[in-house]
């Protein structure tokens, strides 16, 4: 029997206005055989955590262009931990200044991807982070 597809959540927290990048990633992950729960624009950390719980996802991708990542990402991680999903890997894509990356990783982010990252690299990161989480659980 083939392995069950990974279920991932792609969310767009914050107030910036378009989700082209997030949609491109969602499609690439689908084409890589994943089931992508896509929640659309302007998600609060609470909405993201709630969707992650109800959908029991293997990994979460956050697309952030607004510059608010230092506020949004740790909040999502905190909510996940509080609801017993601290093991679910969170990957962040978008416009993230280099100097913020260490802090995000220290907060528990499994990967950070700038605008130039290839879709292959992103697919690989989702697969590996999900596998590592499943083995650690």
């Amino acid at each position: 029997m083939p392995e069950k597809p990974l279920r991932v959540l792609i969310a767009k927290p914050g107030l910036d206005g378009h989700d082209r990048g997030a949609k491109v990633i969602a499609r690439a992950l689908r084409d890589a055989g994943m089931e992508v729960i896509y929640t659309g624009l302007r998600q609060t950390p609470e909405m993201i955590a709630e969707a992650a719980l109800q959908e029991d996802v293997d990994a979460i991708g956050l697309s952030i262009l607004s510059g608010a990542h230092m506020a949004l990402v740790p909040r999502v991680l905190e909510l996940l931990r509080a609801q017993g999903q601290g093991h679910v890997p969170v990957l962040v894509g978008g416009i993230i200044p280099d100097e913020d990356v260490p802090a995000l990783k220290a907060a528990g982010v499994a990967g950070v991807f700038g605008p130039g990252t290839s879709t292959e690299a992103i697919i690989k990161a989702f697969r590996e982070a999900s596998r590592a989480a499943a083995e650690g659980a």
Binding site: P5, G33, E35, V36, I37, Y38, T39, T44, M47
Partner: peptide, 20 residues
């Protein structure tokens, strides 16, 4: 998708009023 076996599940986009 019949090609990849993956899927985009987008119905929640319209259900944000139910959050919380």
């Amino acid at each position: 998708s019949p090609f990849s076996g993956g899927a985009i599940l987008g119905d929640r986009i319209r259900m944000r009023d139910l959050a919380g």
